[in-house]
Each structure stands twice: as C-alpha cells, then as structure tokens.
Design a binder for these strands. Sequence first.
DNA 1: TTGACATATACCTATTTTGGTATATGATGA
DNA 2: TCATCATATACCAAAATAGGTATATGTCAA
Lengths: 135, 135
Amino acid sequence: MARAATLPDAFDAVADPRRRQILDALQHGERTVNELVDLLGLEQPYVSKHLRILREVGVVSVRDDGRHRRYRVHAPALKPIHDWASQFERAWTQRFGHLDTLLEELQHLEADHDRDQTDPSDDRPPDSGADPDHP
Amino acid sequence: MARAATLPDAFDAVADPRRRQILDALQHGERTVNELVDLLGLEQPYVSKHLRILREVGVVSVRDDGRHRRYRVHAPALKPIHDWASQFERAWTQRFGHLDTLLEELQHLEADHDRDQTDPSDDRPPDSGADPDHP
DNA sequence: TTGACATATACCTATTTTGGTATATGATGA
DNA sequence: TCATCATATACCAAAATAGGTATATGTCAA
C-alpha cells in the first residue's frame, strides 16, 4: 500500500530526481526521447516511462515531428508547487529578517542560491530556543 | 528497487499529501503529535512516522515541552523547492503573457488558483503549434 | 513509586515503484 | 514493399513504502 490512494500529481512527478533532471534538461527547449536517454544515461524504455508519468500529470507535453517525439516542459503545471511553497515564504524570510544581526546571513543565502537547491541542512541556524513566531 | 538510490530530500518529503497536510497544519504555529492525529485522522504511530521523515529532511523541528513534543515548520528547508520551481516561472508567465488574447485566461488562472493546486489538466491551453520559446 | 498520558519504535503485509529485458508500434527512406 | 530508426508498452524482479497492531520509552501527577 505505497503512496496513499491519491491520484499522482505534480508533486509526485517532481519527487523523483530523474524526472527533475528531465525537466531541467527540457528547460531550454524541446528534446527527443533519445536525447534525454543520452543525457540521463538511463535505458530508453525507462525514460519513456518517466516521460509518460510527467505527461499524465501535465508537466510535459509532446509534439509529433516525423519519427521523433519532441517533449517540452509545460510550466503552468509546476505553478501549484511554486504556489504551495510560497505559503511558507513569509516564514522563512521572517526567520532571517526579524533579527538585524542575521541580515548578513540572508545575503549569504541569496548568494549561495544554487548550493541551497540540494543542501537544505546548511542554511539552518542553530536553534535559538525562543521563537517570536509562537508566543 | 523503489525510488532511486538518492537520499530522501525535501521533494520526497513533500510528495506525500499527508505530509503536506501536516505542514499546512503547522503553518500557523506549533502542534503536538496528538493534535495532528486529530487533524489528519490517522493512527498516531503513522503520524509519528511521517513526522520523523519530515524531521530527517529538516522540514520540521521539534521542541520538548513537558510530556509533549511540539512540532513546527522549518521553512528554510522548503526554500529549495520554491527555488527549483522558480526556474520555470519565467516560462509560465511568458506562455500566457506573449499573446494578448490569452490575458483573459491568465486572469481566470489567477482566480481559480485553488482548484489549480489539484487539477493541472485544466489550465492547459489548446496546443498552439507554434512556440516562440523553441525557434 | 505507580498510574495515566504522550510519543516513538518494532514488526508485519499488501501494494507501488523502480529499473531492467524483450517486444510491439509507427513513421521514414530506399 | 521492406529495412531501419524512434518510441512505447508488457512483463518481471527487487526493494521501498503505506498503513496497521502491539509495545517500548519517557514524563508528569498523585
């Protein structure tokens, strides 16, 4: 009974790192299946299967072009993820903003944007005990 | 061999709708495990297990308070998700912005924000064939 | 200390998912 | 038409996960 009885959504689709890789690869334009196979180093059938999942969720779309099928990102389907995460945006800016001393850390965070993507354990400040958010 | 040999990250943690529910419930402050059990209607052990996953990924943190354990969201750990999705932000605003005719659809999208969260199949415009993004 | 409460962990089974191999479908060019 | 390239699907094994039940751990109150 894996992954509760909910229809797969964009969150599921994006949870898999390979599928994120695919989306990253598609970010700057269309790609054929074989191009993605080369990029990811996976077996062609499995790339097709990943693409199917991404397609079912609406995150990518296909266009037939002769004997190729060109995939592209359908960005609006990713918006819900962005929006959902935005709920917490205020919280994380607050967390770093409410103390002047941490302004520097905020800038550091902005700069290290990229490393941040994959290493969430780094930007965590030592738990300060008292939290103004929860009186 | 489920879910490739990658350490679980925030994306995995957030892929599960129950865990998203937990995070939503924690959005406005701390909660004890039992409060979450009541809110989610799941068995207590399973809520604890979800919380453990969220903790391991750094998305929530705990604070011991007598015989309670108060959980709270650790928002910065969600930032990578937000940032990743932002990569595509330009694409989705462009897609609806570059044609005046679609302005209306954009507004529709803004309005139906909530439904959007769960139904990505709706905001997809009829494939227009020509795509300025991919010359 | 004992009992009640709050939470975590161990263990179990059915179900998914992963990724692979073999094969089918479908379009193109000769 | 046939051979070939490009992609999709069927099927299979191993492993992870979702939930559940039973139980352990830890804390307070009397």
